[in-house]
Design a protein around this nucleic acid. Structure first.
Length: 366
DNA sequence: ATTGCCGGGTT
DNA sequence: AACCCGGCAAT
């Protein structure tokens, strides 16, 4: 190993001043045991199971095939190396993850906060492979680089002949540890078994989503080398119930678009109201977002992401009937503008009587 | 801070 | 009834 390392250092130094492979090498050895950190433990399995399918809204630079890397990304990927203040997690090399992780644990585990309601969201930085159909997420930049190099670029040499090309194929994502863990854990049981009957690359799994034919991909042999291996979680046994849940899901979707136009059929045309696909999707997102929260540079959140949304929505149905609880307490606030908003305070006399009396609006019913 | 509107007034 | 408003909850 030492020889290799030395050789690599020399090579990279002589090649270009930019190359920062040396640190990579060091962390390389560690990457196998990164999950040892207790706090991250729970997260690992869930991310794995998910990577089998729907995290692979392979993003942004899909259009450009591997041979045309985009500069901006590389810049991003370099950041963690020289800006330690960013996440602290970024620099894979020596194991600086630990301090940051401890930090997180401290804040999230200690009950020093008087009000538990708002928990401080703890973020973790991960590195996500952008290669088509590969949603692999690793905790270290080095790890992801190695993954890309070996799996996708097909280079066997350790990390030596890295010309920095790997940098273009992964991106740094920051994710909320808490919510992600929750969401994914609840997600995993359903996704592998039911939602994705044909495990390997369902061409058009869900009709409802008008997903642009975004085909033509390298179709790499899905990697099973890393600490995880996609596939079946022990949880996936709980499938039976999930099956009819899907049905529920669709039924719900069907109703959504219908209800919209009816509400609008009244006189005062406030304009717009674009419904159809857009409407339904945005609607579903509204109560989907809680469980799964990503914050960070997902470069193109649209498109295939919608796909992911569909699934998680199903989960939501599973865990709890979202509507009932809120509806019981107080009629949920009606979406859509009411007299007050439409005419404004100054035209109060144009309001419907109910609105004038601060009662439920009669003109713009939901 | 703004908005929708329930519950509870007063006329 | 018709009308008004305090105050809560959601945004």
């Amino acid at each position: 190993m030492d020889k290799v390392t030395a050789a690599m250092v020399l090579t990279s130094l002589s090649t270009s001043p930019l190359v920062r492979s040396p640190p990579v090498k060091v962390s390389d050895g560690l990457s196998g045991s990164w999950k040892d950190n207790g706090s991250v433990g729970p997260f690992t399995p869930s991310s794995n199971s998910s990577s089998g399918g729907y995290w692979s809204w392979s993003a942004p630079s899909d259009q450009s095939n591997p041979s045309t890397p985009s500069p901006p990304l590389s810049a991003d990927s370099f950041k963690p190396f020289r800006v330690p203040s960013v996440g602290g997690v970024g620099p894979g090399p020596a194991g600086p993850e630990d301090p940051s992780l401890d930090d997180q644990d401290g804040s999230s585990l200690l009950f020093d906060e008087p009000i538990p309601r708002k928990r401080k969201n703890s973020m973790k930085v991960m590195f996500k492979c952008l290669w088509k159909n590969c949603g692999k997420v690793l905790s270290t930049a080095a790890g992801i680089q190695r993954h890309i190099r070996t799996i996708h670029l097909g280079r066997s040499c350790d990390s030596d002949c890295s010309d920095g090309e790997e940098d273009f194929y992964y991106t740094e994502i920051k994710l909320n540890t808490d919510s992600v863990a929750d969401g994914l854990s609840s997600l995993s049981p359903v996704s592998p078994s039911v939602l994705c009957p044909p495990p390997p690359l369902p061409p058009s799994p869900l009709p409802p989503i008008g997903q642009p034919p975004d085909a033509h991909r390298p179709q790499q042999p899905t990697d099973t080398t890393e600490p995880h291996a996609g596939g079946t979680t022990p949880l996936s046994r709980s499938a039976p119930s999930a099956l009819y849940l899907i049905h529920t899901d669709h039924a719900y979707q069907a109703t959504a678009p219908v209800s919209i136009p009816s509400s609008n059929s009244n006189s005062a045309g406030s304009g717009s109201t674009s419904f159809t696909p857009t409407n339904s999707s945005s609607f579903s997102i509204s109560w989907q977002s809680p469980p799964v929260t990503f914050t960070g540079n997902m470069v193109s959140p649209s498109k295939s992401q919608v796909f992911g949304e569909q699934r998680s929505q199903t989960i939501a149905v599973l865990s709890s009937p979202p509507r009932a609880t809120t509806a019981l307490s107080r009629k949920v606030r009606g979406e859509g503008k009411k007299c007050r908003k439409v005419y404004g305070m100054e035209n109060r006399d144009m309001w419907c009587t109910a609105c004038r009396w601060k009662k439920a609006c009669q003109r713009f019913t939901d």
